[in-house]
């Protein structure tokens, strides 16, 4: 449970946390959202794209301010936006490492040694599944089938797939990633927003 730590509010005081939105949506992001909303019957229906924009604008994960801002922009209750966001597993609520390694441990990959890869990675990075290295470079997760079974074991890092990974060659994956400047979570969010926009950018482009 990600949110256990926020259980410390004291309702006796009746105080609510500040409701000021940080407003980190750039003018371009707002233009993108305005454009996306026109593709749906109502603002509520545009919630998932809005959350993707928020995930990008807030640096790869959704803070409560991000949720608050989405709620305000869509005119929806905050609890509803939070409920939707937590339902889906690809929205993050904690900062992820610069490179987010998602190892498939489903049936096929599992048969060809996915857990060997996982254990090797854990050993090399000094973390367990679900954790992030202390330098913030890598996050390691296991995921279900990535639909590239013939190339098992498969690791997904944002929009990149690494196939035929074994515990012996997994070091190469890490080396390749260390050279890359790509920040997985925000750039993945950006890619998804681009897919959601018909031509990759809003009609009313902000200069």
């Amino acid at each position: 449970m990600d949110n256990e730590n926020s259980n410390s509010i004291t309702p006796e005081t009746g105080e609510r946390t500040s409701c000021k939105s940080e407003g980190r949506f750039s003018p371009n992001a707002i233009a993108e959202l305005d454009e996306i909303i026109t593709h749906y019957p109502n603002k509520k229906a545009a919630m998932l794209p809005a959350l993707w924009i928020a995930q990008r604008e807030y640096g790869g994960y959704l803070t409560r301010e991000a949720i608050r801002e989405v709620a305000r922009l869509l005119g929806r209750p905050k609890a509803e936006v939070e409920g939707v966001a937590t339902f889906y597993s690809m929205y993050n609520f904690k900062p992820k490492g610069k490179h987010h390694l998602e190892v498939c441990t489903c049936l096929t990959c599992g048969c060809v040694g996915a857990y060997g890869v996982v254990h090797k990675l854990e050993e090399m990075l000094g973390i367990h599944l679900g954790e992030t290295t202390s330098d913030g470079e890598f996050t390691l997760s296991e995921v279900e089938c990535l639909d590239w079974c013939e190339a098992g074991t498969v690791i997904q890092v944002g929009n990149k797939y690494f196939g035929h990974v074994t515990k012996d060659n997994v070091e190469m994956v890490l080396e390749q990633l260390r050279e890359s400047d790509d920040h997985t979570s925000p750039s993945l969010a950006d890619d998804i927003v681009k897919i959601l926009l018909p031509k990759g950018e809003p009609k009313s482009k902000v200069e």
Binding site: M1, N3, S6, N7, I9, P11, G14, E15, R16, T17, R64, I67, R68, A71, P77, K78, A79, E80, V81, E82, G83, T86, F87
Partner: peptide, 19 residues
């Protein structure tokens, strides 16, 4: 009030556990 998370982790909550 709304549901957070899903499946076996589902719980009812207010936004950000505020009052």
């Amino acid at each position: 009030l709304n549901f957070l998370w899903r499946g076996a982790d589902m719980e009812v909550a207010t936004f950000d556990h505020t009052e």
